[in-house]
Design a protein around this nucleic acid. Sequence first.
DNA 1: GCAAAAGTGTTGAAAGTACACCCATGG
DNA 2: CCATGGGTGTACTTTCAACACTTTTGC
Lengths: 258, 258
Amino acid sequence: MSEQKQSLMNLLETGATYYLSHISLDCVVFGFHENQLKVLLLKMKDRDKWGLPGGFVRKEESVELAANRVLKERTGLDNIFLQQFHVFSDPDRSNNKDLIESARKTGIEVTEDNWFAQRFISIGFYALVEFSQVKPTADAISDDCTWWDLQEIKSLMLDHNLILNKALETLRLHLNYQPIGYTLLPDKFTMPELQKLYETILGKKLDRRNFQRKITGYGILKRWEERRSGVAHKAPYFYSFDTEKYKQALQEGLDGGW
Amino acid sequence: MSEQKQSLMNLLETGATYYLSHISLDCVVFGFHENQLKVLLLKMKDRDKWGLPGGFVRKEESVELAANRVLKERTGLDNIFLQQFHVFSDPDRSNNKDLIESARKTGIEVTEDNWFAQRFISIGFYALVEFSQVKPTADAISDDCTWWDLQEIKSLMLDHNLILNKALETLRLHLNYQPIGYTLLPDKFTMPELQKLYETILGKKLDRRNFQRKITGYGILKRWEERRSGVAHKAPYFYSFDTEKYKQALQEGLDGGW
DNA sequence: GCAAAAGTGTTGAAAGTACACCCATGG
DNA sequence: CCATGGGTGTACTTTCAACACTTTTGC
């Protein structure tokens, strides 16, 4: 028996023992690569549906710890930047029909009264990670785990489109209150890259010059002498966040409507 | 047997039948009266502790419906403005020792394995109500229900201080994106009253004249010919919200940092 | 040398801030 | 008649928004 199948059977049999009933969590993991905002998705086993990485809450852990544990499994990273943003609790949102069907397709029997078949209320988290550091890893009910361009994401399983949209909406609202640039970009980045990130999150174009003035005005960036070379135009400078000043500035919020 | 005691015994015995396990909700109900921001609190039976109104989620309802149901019982009002804002899930936040102790004091035996004694994850809601319309009503585990001035609230049961603080913090962030004035004030109110509300939520003084200009600038207020009389100074005009324009304005957010 | 994209600067409009002045009312 | 607090106005400053011009680089 494959390791994955074993782990799925484990979940179905022992879920009720280790996890709180009725409570699940789903994570919208954002990354930024090649000037695109990306989201980490899992492909359901033997089906053409994709969904958000999720999991359950162990009887002795907080939901934050649970989300951290789940994301460590899916990305290889520990202590990811995580924010819970909404609870999804429509009674019809899921009786896990989809998951059970997936399980059956791998040849596992799931009875109606299985722990897995109950109603779940899901706590939505969004996570911000540095794209290059993630090693996407599928879980017991999926057979693929990869990054998707935000624009290319179509119909997801269950209410995951709803969850994704709400995450995006929240991300926009949090843009000036959370270390969003800091956690999504690599240590060194250029101004155009940072601007593209903001534009993608906000869903609108920003003026190059005004953006630069405003963002540097916060005093949270450090410019390097070094530039990005190899481009067919003037080489842009590298920047890094001054983490100390960034954190300080976030206390009050980087106000101003973009 | 009192009606309340009966209802408490019912809860303990049949909780597991009607409610989802491990999930509770707590509501921070804000009202505004005599230029003070108030919060609705319950006094625990036979103890000197106060706490937030809370409840559980029925097996067939969403958490929003559950909160609405709970608040209907505590305030007499239906369809209150409600926003979930955070999930509180520290494993040690509550094994309901407090509640069980309260129950015991009313002469009801609660065993260790009772549904009530399990670990609960609580979903925090804040609610905004028009003070004068509320009829505070205690529940099965409390013997009093009244409004408290925000400033006078001291130590609450369990992690309810934490919940309250987080609610306030969220309220501040939402000030320009939610119909906060509209739901907290009576139909007619004066400019100084509205200003005091903003000041209380934000926790700082605002300039009287600039406040007036800014808030009227949004075009969401309607001024009446009528004034508030009986005060030992110039009588202020009454205002009302133009609900249509208010909702419209909220779509984009009433931006600007106060 | 030319297209593409970066760095820097200017300017007028809008918004925010800090005030001063007058007015109505009850005691 | 005066203390209290409301209504309105103005002048200064800061920020925002829309621009133009120059510089660097690969082809």
